[in-house]
Nucleic acid binder design. Structure first.
Lengths: 220, 220
DNA sequence: TTAATCCTACGTAAAAACACTTATTTTTTA
DNA sequence: TAAAAAATAAGTGTTTTTACGTAGGATTAA
């Protein structure tokens, strides 16, 4: 006879965090942690080579080699029965949009309480998914709940003009100054900036600068 | 008769992480966790109002309100007997230089093993400090261990409030959102942002983001 | 040729950023 | 302990950004 415990896998690159969660989960009678992974690759390897599969995966989004977003995409496709709860430090709109799109069953910020984590796991096991109030609130703020996301991690293709404008934005020029340098109208610069905001899923120029640095469009 | 256990305080804003560490430490016979703080202020409050003081503090560097660096500065001045072990996600040179300069007794990356954590705590309790091989290796790479930091960037002293605002700006929050999180008026947030612009010699928030990244106030 | 993409540009309105000033509280220091 | 300095907080006014829509011309590919 098989165990009727909820089988859980953990994926997080921080061993201290992982072990900590492990002991928190271990205290619950109906939970059984069957695997720990330090990155997405380890997790995928386990799932493909092992017949004892988890019901639920607690997945950190930031991991080396294969991050949580990519791993979630793969797993939801190949193992649709496994439910994934995403773990992040920050509850940003773009993250949430992303994770829901690629099929995460729920969402936990790392400063959630252990009680909340355990509740979420039980809810996700019982139902198809569980979103807490905070997430629902953020979701309700979307104008276009599904369409309005472009992946934070996914490659974003910029046109050459957009790239030029982005570089100048990172040099702290405003629209008028950029327009002078590129010999175009400030309105056109605005248009390009707006495209950049949309494409990179940024809220403002702070987001554009971060994107530019992360994508090595500007080098520090 | 007093306990001869090692008294430990935890400071980390992520409750899940904190609780996890708590259970890891609790399994050790000679450890006793006497306090948990979600930010530096809570920790300082505890130390100043309570006579039962920890021997060792496990301190996350990234915390809201009062971060680990600032808290460490205060505590090493006011309570020189308390030894601080800094926790970070990344082992960068400037962090290590910083933490040693302000008096951290040791250093743990969050993907250390529980075994390593426990070993470090015991070492720090027995001796004045403990630096693992990784940290020593990084230290040995300094040409001028103390002086060689931040020669390129002029030293800009930010207040803790300014630092908080800057961190939130880098997370793409606007003044209203930042105000809500810090429980102050949006106008006050504007004031802090203006101080930041002046102090960092920036033209706009693009410049602030660049400054924050270059000075490791935010980490990519 | 039609479709698609890109660059260009404008209008309106709202939101946010930014500049400047003032006031209160806290900390330093003389 | 009083004065000075620094930090924090907040109001007023101007400029810039941002949202959203529209649209013509150039280039390229199906």
């Amino acid at each position: 006879m098989m165990s009727d415990k909820i089988k859980i896998a953990l994926a997080d690159d921080e061993e201290l965090f992982r072990k900590g969660i492990y002991f928190l989960l271990q205290r619950e009678q109906n939970f059984e942690v069957i695997f720990e992974a330090a990155n997405g690759n380890q997790l995928i390897d386990f799932l493909t080579t092992n017949s004892n599969r988890p019901d639920i995966i607690l997945m950190d989004l930031k991991m080396p080699l294969l991050n949580g977003v990519e791993a979630t995409k793969l797993i939801t496709q190949q193992f649709p029965n496994i439910k994934i709860i995403a773990l992040t430090s920050y509850n940003t709109k773009s993250f949430i949009a992303n994770m829901i799109e690629i099929g995460a069953a729920s969402f936990l910020v790392k400063n959630a309480s252990p009680k909340e984590m355990i509740f979420t796991i039980n809810e996700v096991y019982k139902k198809a998914f569980y979103y807490n109030e905070q997430v629902i609130k953020i979701l309700s703020e979307f104008k276009f709940p599904i369409e309005n996301r472009s992946d934070f991690f996914e490659k974003v293709e910029l046109t050459s003009r957009e790239r030029e404008v982005l570089e100048l934005i990172c040099q702290q020029f405003n629209s008028t100054e950029i327009a002078e340098q590129l010999f175009i109208s400030p309105r056109t610069v605005d248009t390009h900036r707006n495209s950049l905001l949309f494409k990179t899923n940024s809220q403002n120029i702070a987001g554009l600068v971060l994107f530019a640095i992360q994508n090595k469009i500007v080098i520090l």
